[in-house]
């Protein structure tokens, strides 16, 4: 029997990952509107629960490095249990290796990566609420090479800690990694969602039927309305909206000139590579 493989739906936070997942969920429903809190294709980020269930030990008593050491095996186990041919799995980590030198995403179970990227100036504005901080601090986080998502010293979040690192390192880790890759720019998704979704669907080997319907069913207003009415399970800070604005170009309007310079200095090379500068 062929072993289950992963497609990693990878991105820095607030770069369109959730939107793409909603589109894929709508496709799985034949183009219907997905319930944002009860998704058909559950592609959650790995949690302490997953680790504890698979390996039988108290996961919150493991250190960051110990968790990283067992993550590849955890993905292999989850793949084996799924019974599917392919698993589409959301990830926010950069592509990184644990202390044993093994990528946390096991190469032997990887079919490919859909990497979604967004202009870091817009990410800074959008991610401020996601990180529960100010725009000024979000600009710092985008440059922080050791930044770990869900590494909460106060108490564990549901998800396992994920190494984000700086935005540029995040992007290049995936783009220059050796997994088969489809690069999707958030701005292209906004500009022509149908064409972008077609490319994704083709890469995933899924049927392109219902692509238009899926785009219509996951329009920003639809997702924001659902969040307004019933909240969004995946929002780390319930006081702020997750589906906030969704627009491109906000960074240039809302960041101070100093903040813009800081981002362009820190990330200029990668921004140029992606056509943002």
């Amino acid at each position: 029997m062929k072993e289950t493989e992963y497609i990693w739906l990878a991105s820095y936070p607030k770069s369109g990952n959730t939107w793409v997942r909603m589109m894929l969920n709508s496709l799985a429903l034949g183009g219907a509107v997905p319930d944002i809190n009860d998704l058909e294709l559950k592609v959650p980020i790995v949690s302490y629960t997953n680790l504890q269930e698979q390996f039988g030990v108290e996961a919150t008593e493991l250190t960051y490095s110990e968790i990283a050491l067992v993550r590849p095996e955890l993905y292999r186990r989850l793949a084996l249990e799924s019974g599917r041919d392919v698993l589409i799995h959301k990830v926010h980590d950069q592509l990184w290796g644990n202390d044993a030198g093994e990528p946390v995403f096991p190469k032997d179970r990887t079919r490919g990566v859909v990497y979604i990227v967004r202009d870091p100036r817009d990410v800074a504005v959008s991610a401020a609420a996601f990180f529960g901080t100010t725009i000024e601090a979000a600009v710092d986080i985008l440059a922080a090479e050791k930044y770990v998502l869900a590494y909460s010293p106060g108490g564990p979040s549901r998800q396992l800690p994920q190494l984000l690192g700086g935005w540029s390192t995040h992007v290049t880790s995936w783009l220059d990694g050796d997994f088969p890759l489809l690069l999707v720019r958030y701005e292209d998704l906004l500009d022509d969602p149908v064409a972008s979704l077609r490319k994704i669907v083709e890469f995933l080997g899924m049927s392109a039927e219902h692509v238009e319907a899926a785009v219509a069913a996951t329009h920003f207003d639809q997702l924001a309305r659902q969040e307004q009415q019933q909240g969004f399970r995946e929002n780390p800070h319930a006081k702020d909206k997750f589906f906030r604005s969704g627009k491109a170009g906000e960074g240039k309007l809302r960041l101070t000139p100093e903040q813009l310079v800081r981002i362009e200095t820190a990330h200029g090379a990668v921004m140029k590579r992606l056509g943002y500068l």
Partner: peptide
């Protein structure tokens, strides 16, 4: 045979935890 726990044929359990 997991990273921390092994279970034998006779139901014996081996645990290996660094801390």
């Amino acid at each position: 045979r997991g990273p921390f726990i092994q279970i034998g044929r006779e139901g014996e359990v081996l645990l290996d935890m660094k801390h």
